[in-house]
Design a protein around this nucleic acid. Sequence first.
DNA 1: TAACTGTCAATAACATCCAG
DNA 2: CTGGATGTTATTGACAGTTA
Length: 222
Amino acid sequence: MKQLQQKINRYSLKITSNDRECEDLAQDVLLKVHKRMEADPACEISNAYLYKIVLNTWKDKLKKRSLPSEPLDERHLGLPGIDTELSARELLELLAHRLPPRAMVIVLLMDVFDFTAKETAGLLSLAEGAVQVAVGRARLKLKKLAKQPDSASPASYQPDGSEQLDFESLVEAFRRRNPDAICKSYLSLAKQQIKLSQLSYRDGQLVFYFEDPDGNLIRVTS
DNA sequence: TAACTGTCAATAACATCCAG
DNA sequence: CTGGATGTTATTGACAGTTA
């Protein structure tokens, strides 16, 4: 690791020609490398690969500087007029009832739980292209809704009473791949302060982590 | 280190479906 | 018939990772 860090510092200094910039860049690169190694401990970081990471990270930094900055959670759902401290999840819960169920579920999976379009497509039995288009349109619609004065009022969502008031209904909705049921169950749980804190999809199996109002964590595998 | 390949996401343009 | 939601296909660009 120390050897790796020396190489990163050397490359960073070569690219930036500036001590302070070098330190910044090296730190970012180290983070990326650490994440990469965490994801795949067996991977080997070649010099060529390491240099590529340093170079791309530097290009990223330069590009970001030339763009107006925006909060991370608003990277997709940049919603003007709404408290910028809200997370993507909170923004979605506030406006979800104004989206068609399928669009809401796609935004939930991709923007809140960081699913790829491919994973989302697999989960909802859709084509990958359809998911890519759907998420783009949903984000656009959320932006438009956010510009309307009373659109963020959650009062317009009224549960019809048919959904089960526990986390199992959400798991069952995912199992049935039913966007309408997923949307209803998710919003119903959010109202009861039961939070779906984590959701992952590996080898066709879903793993849910729920957190109740008392902070108890419940893990459910589909 | 330049150039390449593969993957993923965003987007445009057009088509289809369906409720009103 | 019309407008909105959704799907398909093609194109483009960013980025990760490899090769010569």
